[in-house]
């Protein structure tokens, strides 16, 4: 009996070792461990074994079964691993083949800049507001301290619908709308489309965008204006950006300034974008003129404020090195896809 079991075990193990496919392993299982398998047959012959030897023989049969089962399991795991390796070898792909992409659309460069400016000022507690593009003379000029015979009001600069209604030439009118609401303090920005009577060419467009900013509160100072715009410039153009304020003139602010940022292309050493000066002019600003406050029923003795206005296209053109403004309104996808 002992010899028989040893032979069965030896034969089975050898067959397992020689199996190179799962069904062959299965065959081994059936031949030895199945209902009619050799080991099962041995077990069936137990009735002929003397009762005192039965536990011993039973133990021997079980050991043999366990040995075969273990060998079968090991062989199966090894075989599966081997087969998977073979099949994976066949599945090698060329990872440099082109990607399958969702064809996403692209935002207009103006909008990218606009959203960036909005993000920065909203973060500083400003509300984004809008005003009408077709506007009255009062909001576009008069309430901004621009006198009746000012050259900006000439027909060569401003599009008129009639004597009193015009296409706004600046977003500054939204300042007045906001102040008239009578809710103080004010911290707002107003992005929007404006119009000037300029023929279309590489550097001019009769329609472009501005972003107006206005802060009105008690104790607002010129230093606050400087600090706010310096903060904005750092967010917009990078942490190392410096801002320079030069005296300038606008009818609706006093004192007024133009703000330059250190050139974000060359860092201030001078290049073609800053015309060698190291500075790029980006906006006009100033302390809200007392006449403007007064006209909007705000007492300049109690309140002060600052306002600023920047040209969206100007920043977009500089930032993205776009050399022709007409590209912004042609909507050629080969242009739009670059943003």
């Amino acid at each position: 009996m002992k010899e028989l079991l040893a032979r069965i075990k030896e034969e089975a193990l050898e067959k397992i070792a020689n199996s190179d496919a799962p069904d062959k392993l299965n065959e081994v299982r059936i031949n030895y461990l199945g209902k009619k398998g050799e080991l099962t047959t041995v077990l069936k012959g137990m009735k002929d074994v003397s009762p005192e030897d039965r536990p011993k023989v039973g133990q021997m049969v079980n050991d043999t079964r366990e040995a075969i089962e273990n060998a079968l399991e090991n062989a199966r795991v090894n075989l599966e691993r081997k087969l998977r390796e073979i099949s994976m070898k066949k599945e090698v792909i060329d990872v440099t083949l082109p990607a399958k992409k969702m064809q996403m659309g692209h935002r207009h460069p103006n909008t990218i800049v606009m959203e960036e400016v909005e993000r920065i000022f909203v973060g500083m507690g400003y509300e984004v507001v809008e005003g009408p593009e077709v506007e009255t003379d009062y909001y576009n000029f008069e309430a901004l301290n621009i006198p009746a015979d000012h050259p900006a009001k000439d027909e060569q600069d401003t599009f008129y619908i009639n004597g009193d209604i015009l296409l706004r030439t600046q977003t500054s009118g939204t300042q007045v709308h906001e102040m008239e609401k009578g809710k103080l303090p004010i911290r707002m920005i107003a992005p929007g489309r404006v119009f000037r009577s300029d023929e279309v060419d590489a550097t001019h467009s009769p329609s472009f965008h501005q972003i107006e900013g206005l802060v009105i509160d008690k104790h607002i100072t010129f230093a606050d204006l400087k600090g706010t715009l310096a903060e904005f410039a750092k967010e917009m153009f990078g942490e190392d950006t410096k801002v320079r304020f030069r005296p300038h003139h606008f009818n609706f602010t006093e004192p007024s300034a133009e703000a330059d940022v250190s050139c974000f292309k060359c860092g201030g050493s001078g290049c073609r974008f800053c015309k060698g000066t190291g500075w790029i002019e980006i906006l006009g600003c100033g302390m809200v003129h007392p006449n403007v406050l007064r006209m909007s029923k705000i007492d300049p003795e109690q309140y002060s404020g600052f306002a600023f206005g920047l040209g969206l296209e100007r920043i977009a053109l500089l930032k993205y090195e776009i050399d022709d403004m007409r590209l912004l309104y042609e909507n050629d996808v080969r242009f739009l896809k670059q943003f």
Binding site: G125, Y126, E127, G227, F245, P255
Partner: peptide, 26 residues
């Protein structure tokens, strides 16, 4: 004030942020 600022120097005026009532960005 602008005359003073011009000759005192726009660049010498400090940089501060507005104080006062906080507002919510919207």
């Amino acid at each position: 004030a602008e005359e003073v600022a011009r000759f005192y120097g726009y660049d010498k005026i400090g940089e501060t942020l507005p104080t006062g009532e906080a507002t919510t960005g919207k």
